[in-house]
C-alpha cells in the first residue's frame, strides 16, 4: 500500500468505528439508519482500497441505496423513536 492509501485506510477505520457506535446507541432510528448507510459508504471505499472493485460496486448499490430505503420505509410505517 502506498502512503496515501494507508492514510485513507486509517481515516476510514475511524469513521467505521464512530458510525458503528452511532448506529447502535442512537435513540432516533432514522439517524441510526443513516449511520448504517455511512458504514456501507466507507466500507465500499475500503473494498476499493483492498483491490476488490466487484464487491465495492455491490456494496455501493445494495448497501447504500436499497438497504437504507427499506429501513426508512419500515420506520415510516412503525415508530420513529426507540423508547426506554
Amino acid at each position: 500500500m502506498t502512503n496515501i492509501e494507508i492514510i485513507l485506510t486509517i481515516i476510514s477505520l475511524i469513521v467505521l468505528i464512530v458510525a458503528g457506535f452511532y448506529a447502535v446507541f442512537k435513540k432516533d432510528l432514522i439517524h441510526a439508519v443513516v449511520a448504517t448507510s455511512v458504514i456501507s459508504l466507507v466500507l465500499s471505499l475500503m473494498f476499493y482500497l483492498l483491490q476488490a472493485p466487484d464487491v465495492a460496486l455491490t456494496e455501493a448499490a445494495i448497501g447504500i441505496a436499497l438497504s437504507t430505503i427499506i429501513f426508512i420505509i419500515t420506520i415510516r410505517n412503525t415508530k420513529r423513536f426507540e423508547d426506554k
Binding site: 500500500m1 467505521l16 458503528g20 448506529a23 447502535v24 432510528l29 441510526a32 439508519v33 448504517t36 458504514i39 456501507s40 466500507l43 475500503m46 473494498f47 483492498l50 483491490q51 476488490a52 464487491v55 456494496e59 448497501g63 438497504s67 429501513f71 419500515t74 420506520i75 412503525t78 426507540e82 423508547d83
Partner: peptide, 29 residues
C-alpha cells in the same frame, strides 16, 4: 436492544464487519 428495528440494524452492522474481514483476508500486498 429491545427495539425490533434496532435488532435488524445490529444484524446489518455485524454483516458489514464480516464482509470487511473476508475481503481483508484475501488482500495481497
Amino acid at each position: 436492544k429491545k427495539n425490533l428495528i434496532k435488532i435488524v440494524i445490529g444484524l446489518s452492522v455485524a454483516d458489514s464487519g464480516l464482509h470487511l474481514l473476508f475481503v481483508a483476508v484475501g488482500y495481497i500486498n
